[in-house]
Simulated assay, not measured.
Amino acid sequence: MLYCQNLNKTYGRHPALRDVNLSLEAGRAVGLLGPNGAGKSTLIKCLLGLIRPESGRIESEDEMRIGYLPELARLPEHASALALIRLGLALNRQDMAEATSWLSKVGIPERLWERPVCRLSKGLRQRVAIAHALAGKPELIVLDEPMSGLDALGRTEALAWLREAVDEGAGMLVCSHIVPDLVRLCDEIHLLVNGRIEASTEISDHSIDEIRHLEALLQRHASQAREGVG
């Protein structure tokens, strides 16, 4: 579906990505974990063609439908939730009549469908943004911190929507700092530190040991980053 090989990207003298290899396949969710400044968002932007790497190779299927949720989803403030989902469906050449079904699925009350998104709560705006990324059943879904602004119930529901999309055949890349969410959602998780993938694990069962191991790795590397240790 999409893969990158030996990907490198720098900002000035700072290496943002260093020899990154990653494969995204249909029907699998890949998690990307790492401390702030690790290069997660840079990797996503390279994979989507939003920025160019200095070296390396990225290959993907032709004319693949992609759903994307950036870390800071800036929805058009004066557009309604209904209009935004219709737009997402239209871009994927899908039936715009499905917009109401998507809004119902992500828990937006019908009385708010025509309300400008700037007048919705942060949690509801994030639900609309997730629906916009999923609408039209894209073949590849890329999500940067999709749980931002969601409460515990919203996170649980969002994990179910995302896993359903994967089980229906979509490939998925999820960037998050919430280890238990990634373990519950993903088939494999990669730890990115200082632009390099330092650890990878397959999620065979959602055991507490896997969660603790990943959290310990993240905390150790985050602590080293704060102290300036490479």
Rank of each mutant, 00 (worst) to 15 (best):
L33A: 06
C186M: 05
G34N: 02
A29L: 07
H132N: 14
S176P: 05
P180R: 03
R212N: 04
S207K: 08
L43E: 08
L72M: 14
T10W: 12
A199R: 05
R220T: 15
Y68C: 00
K137P: 12
E202Q: 08
S121V: 01
S200A: 07
A222M: 02
L150E: 01
G195F: 10
D167Q: 13
W161G: 07
N21T: 09
G230I: 15
L47M: 04
G49I: 12
Y11G: 06
D95T: 08
S148W: 05
A152Q: 11
A73L: 08
A97M: 13
I189V: 06
L48K: 00
I58Q: 13
N21D: 12
G171E: 07
L2D: 01
I211R: 14
I178Y: 00
I178K: 01
L32M: 12
K105L: 06
T156G: 11
Q219H: 15
D181R: 00
V20K: 03
C175K: 09
P15R: 01
L84P: 10
G136S: 12
A165R: 04
E202P: 08
E63Q: 12
I66V: 14
G149P: 15
V166N: 04
G34K: 11
A81H: 07
V174S: 00
K105S: 06
G27V: 07
S176D: 10
E54Q: 08
R212V: 11
G34D: 01
G49S: 03
I141N: 10
M172G: 08
K9N: 06
K105Q: 03
T42N: 03
W161R: 13
P35Y: 09
R184C: 09
G171K: 05
R65S: 15
W161M: 09
R196T: 11
I44L: 15
